[in-house]
Design a protein around this nucleic acid. Structure first.
Lengths: 332, 332
DNA sequence: CTGAAAGCGCTAACAA
DNA sequence: TTGTTAGCGCTTTCAG
């Protein structure tokens, strides 16, 4: 069923039908006729054909590294909340942590198919930047800051600093970190920087052997805790983890080894995801506002789509420290 | 840049360009010319215009109740894995547990925009069924069974039965349940049925006061545990929860009250999500194969799209019992 | 193997 | 207000 056929059934012209589904500008009679015809036929206009003419798709592409991670899904939920209210739908690409797929997807979105792209960023290569520069649709990056682009990001360095400082203040003497790749400027580099800044402030040596680089997962946290605590020499007495998931995995290992949290080892994570409340020793962490980040990113992309904002902006959302038992220690 | 303009730059006809991006029926020379022109111009064909002609969008709609739930995101991940390999993209609708939005989205997808729809189902009303019947594109339902439609679902009743039976076998005498609305035939009704079947088998009375109906969340689990344990009369000594999240919330309450798990109260959940491993007393649960469900649903929709299968099928995936500490009890 | 031309379903400018 | 008409950018016969 197409518009011509339908317009005949409704007894009006094609334009009338088009107007019905668009601006309005229509008499009540025609409107009623069309409505009746819709009841009968179930007609709905083809979005593809409309897009050819109008050049708008009402689609926004969302590229993310791992859909089943709580942070990504909460950001995406925020994005969707705003965009769906404006009649946009999300088209999703899960790159499964494969940077090549990020590039591919950007290329795919480059000229058509979507009105804008939101990229939940991880690692940016030169290739990324060059592809991003060539985009013909607005782009917003979430979770990272990249000069020359619209970004919504967290205060990663500040959160890591505050958490580490807290552990040191509570009496920890020998801090270790399980971070992620510093190629990830936010979750990797910035959080490491924050950790180091606190160490520096407390004049604590930063033993290189006490630095692990993990993947974004519980299992990886477990493995790296094992590695960390299997080394010769004095054991760490506090552990800063780049994410709650890593922290939860590390805690699983500590428990296995009969090491008490926080008495023997303090632990903290970042994110304040669901797991933090539930670990056997409730996890101190920094709440990052994932959903809000999604909402703000959606607002930015909307504004770019509508007004073609040429001036780029970076929005940083702050964290809240959530202190639970995993970093508390009675001062002796 | 459109195909006409581009074909001039490439020095070939529009048809040649179209063939390049489709079947290929093209000489090497022309192919090379086109490739060179692409390098220069960055031309890519408009998907919308293609869809108008071919009537395929290479898009599959996914409707789900809550993106940020681990089960939904894992199912979606499975769907994406299969579909993206076949060149399809996902268009996502997060209904935020609003059944009206399910209907709206189905209507939107009814005639166009997507080649197929995968619905992560919750509660089905008559309206749902009538809208589903009118769909002009293939539909697959995940997580529920609905006669007359393609479904991929779990063995909810069996899992609930096996878990409850386990607790009873381990010596529990006074079982309680925190379920979800029985309008949800899978997570609500079937799991309650399984629970009751086990009680029946062990000749345990099913005190109506020991049945709570919660939402799908940790907080709700907490609240309903509180309600359950605040009642007069003997307290339950084992607690079957419809989901891991509910169980984790309930456990938080028990801990607050100084009730030990499993010594005072056994607890189990369903799903085997990340949280189950991390609760202060590791949670016994039934692993449901979410990602596999997504993969199978994607295969089904692909098959329907391609061969227009008219005969409907229901695929049930079985569970695995994962016994952790929360249901263990030394027999006295 | 190639190009001309018709037409997919829709929107929007224009004339009425 | 309304209908006619000329495209939007592409695919796909069809004749060469």
């Amino acid at each position: 069923m197409n518009i011509s056929e339908f317009s005949k059934i409704a007894g009006v012209s094609k334009s009338a039908v088009s107007r019905y589904f668009n601006d309005g500008y229509l008499s009540e009679e025609k409107r009623a006729q069309i409505e009746k015809a819709i009841q009968i036929t179930g007609y709905a206009p083809s979005i593809a054909a409309r897009s050819v003419k109008t050049r708008v798709t009402k689609l926004v592409g969302v590229i993310l590294p791992k859909l089943s991670s709580e942070s990504c899904s909460r950001i995406t939920e925020g994005i969707d909340e705003v965009l769906e209210a404006e009649g946009y739908k999300l088209i999703l690409v899960n790159t499964a942590n494969n940077p090549l797929k990020e590039i591919e997807s950007l290329e795919l979105f480059r000229q058509n198919r979507v009105d804008g792209v939101i990229l939940l960023g991880t690692v940016f290569t030169e290739l990324h930047k060059s592809v991003l520069k060539k985009m013909h649709v607005p782009v917003v990056i979430v979770g990272q800051r990249l000069k020359g682009f619209n970004c919504v990001c967290h205060n990663d360095e500040g959160a890591a600093y505050a958490l580490t400082r807290q552990m040191l203040k509570n009496g920890a003497k020998r801090p270790a970190i399980i971070g992620v790749t510093p190629e990830d400027k936010a979750a990797g580099k910035a959080r490491l920087d924050g950790f180091l800044r606190a160490l520096n402030e407390f004049h604590v040596a930063t033993g290189g052997k006490l630095t692990e680089i993990a993947q974004f997962s519980m299992d990886s946290g477990y493995d790296h805790a094992k590695h960390l605590f299997s080394q010769a020499g004095p054991k760490p007495d506090c552990l800063f983890c780049a994410t709650d998931d890593i922290a939860s995995g590390a805690m699983l290992y500590l428990r296995e080894q009969g090491l008490r949290v926080p008495e023997d080892v303090m632990v903290c994570g970042i994110g304040d995801t669901k797991i933090a409340k539930n670990t056997y020793c409730p996890l101190t962490t920094a709440r990052l506002h994932y959903k809000t980040a999604g909402i703000e990113a959606a607002n930015m992309i909307l504004s770019s789509i509508r007004h073609g904002d040429k001036i780029q902006r970076t929005l940083q959302l702050d964290y809240d420290i959530v202190e639970r038992e995993s970093t508390k220690r009675e001062t002796v």
